[in-house]
Design a binder for these strands. Structure first.
Lengths: 201, 201, 201, 201
DNA sequence: GATGAATGAGTATTCATTCAT
DNA sequence: TATGAATGAATACTCATTCAT
């Protein structure tokens, strides 16, 4: 009989420790030693669960992505009007990010990793997939709102999705730099303006 | 006889070479050797102009920021209506970023640098300043448009500025990942929707 | 009930697997994991049979040496003339080595191990013993051939033994590098020349 | 003006230090730190002259080979009879090896390296080239001795060359293990036997 | 007996920075 | 001014060995 270990639990424990390290010091500024120490395991153990530093980093990214997606789905009721579901989606995304704001720097590291030739392949591809998914979700919400007659038919759903998804990212960056910003309030104000229009009739 | 060198020209030459390196390989993935080789000067020379790698990187950031600001000011006429000037501002920002898209990864590196404890102070502060400036610019445009009766008075200028600035960042990230996106078209569609409102009256 | 295991069989199984690994990747290039995997047992099991990697390697050496000696004794009839027995000895040694040529690299690793200060004691001593044994065997054959009047009495048996033993090693090295060589033919040609002399009378 | 360094001298200095380390501790047992310390330079400097440990090792091999070849050519007069030149060649090879006997282990390491899959390509190829060269040299000497009527015409020059080259290697191995052996005496005795034949007429 | 998770020492290699020329 | 040789700290990754189950 062998030593019994909860593999998933240990993996999560390592991911958590690694996420904190990457958030604090960045990818290159974090050594495998740091991660091992933060998780209170030996360096060798980290390699039992992730075969390289890049793999560990990718694991952290995927894990966070999944967490975010879960909190998104959890907070996103389906009973409301399509229009309201759009607002809720965006607000839930913001809420999820705000909740884990201390790990937000990991996203910035992932974006940077997606731009470096050494890591581009893996990370750029994964990010693009993520964005495609998010945008598709928004596009569908917009289209069903249009079908329901809640939104104007001539609105370009794709463009709107790109802006909304982008705005969440860009807003979080500003919030991270200046925590006195209240992103929920900004989102609320923005949607009011967007729905009603900001131009004088 | 003194060798006459155009100090500013050489500095710019180094910045340009360094920007290309940082864009390709990231901050940590770029060595001072790489930069020196790309600029076809000796490693020692780089240190005559920048006292450390971080300084060089900061120089690149400031230089790009300045370039962007210049192209912004250049493209942004002042004769138009306030409403149109808002659109032009955003579009000019997008245009400037699209024009230098190969250096866009440098921005991602700067964002990441602003999040790492080792470099946070300098970069987070500079970024915050930049964002504050951009937002103030937008806020003023919005307010004067409101004063001119072009925009509704109840629109929260600060929130709108945050979203617009954020959306440009977030949109460029998506464009960088997927160059088939046409950011100008997205911006145009979005502003139409925003001015007119997307909700059914 | 006790699990009945043929200890000797398992030991041999491990030696065989280890020999293949050491031959392929060398001493340092082979990990205990490799050996365990090749033998399809757990790493811990290897340590039940050999108390260290060096021990395992030494075991492989001794095992191969023994195998070679057995095939030597098997092929070396005693009924022939002393002169012929010399030829047969050398040819049998060559035959044994050729037969296990894929494990020949293990010998090269042993030689190297005998030269490294960390392993010198054990391996240099064992090798010297082996060479002393082989040479003594040859010397005795030569002396009895001299007694029988088959070989000239003024031939220095010790020198001849050293050269013959050395030539086998050196020839095998060349054969390993270039398998198009036919070592048996070379040995035959050489002995003809040696017995008859190569100089013009 | 740049720091003036005698590149060749420093390279040789490093090779010498490295050769001593490899001879003492083997390839894997020698760290780049050891080499740097032995040469009294920093680790980084070693990498200025050799781009990897394997490169350094190969450099040592090539350097020793060249040294041996030079001492061979130096000691090998051309005025003598072809028969005598054969003896001199072998004796000079032995002399060269004896002279640098403390570095002999490096050869054993090279042989081992030629057998490991990770290093086989480079080292096996180089060794084969070396052996081909040595054998060709001997073959030519034998053939000219045959032409001159000094050696029997029916002797197979190729086989003889293989055995002679192999015998030198094998003899040196025995000598290294047991320095009480006098390899020159062995060679002399052997050639006497070989020229005159050891069989009773 | 058998297993394989855990450990942590060990090492090749890179690179920012300095400084003699 | 410009150069590039020299330095040595820093770090990802491997692996022999142990031992709880």
């Amino acid at each position: 009989m062998v030593r019994v270990v909860d593999v998933e639990a240990k993996r999560s424990h390592l991911l958590e420790a690694a996420a904190a390290c990457f958030a604090r010091s960045g990818y290159d500024g974090t050594s495998m030693n740091d991660v091992a120490a933060a998780a209170k395991v030996s360096k060798g153990s980290v390699y039992d669960y992730f075969k390289s530093k890049e793999d560990l980093f990718y694991g952290v990214f995927a894990w966070l992505q999944q967490q975010l997606m879960q909190s998104l789905l959890a907070e996103m009721g389906t009973s409301a009007s399509a229009q309201e579901r759009i607002v809720r989606s965006v607000d839930a995304a913001v809420a999820g990010l705000v909740q884990h704001i201390s790990l937000y720097p990991v996203s910035l590291e992932v974006w940077a990793a997606a731009a470096r030739t050494q890591t581009r392949d893996r990370f750029a591809h994964a990010m693009q997939q993520t964005y495609t998914d998010y945008r598709r979700e928004i596009v569908e919400l917009v289209r069903s709102a249009q079908s329901a007659g809640e939104l104007k038919a001539n609105v370009d759903a794709e463009s709107l999705a790109m802006v909304l998804v982008g705005a969440v990212d860009g807003l979080m960056l500003q919030y991270w730099l200046d925590p006195s910003i209240d992103p929920h309030r900004v989102v609320r104000n923005f949607f009011t303006a967007l729905f009603e229009g900001i131009g004088q009739p």
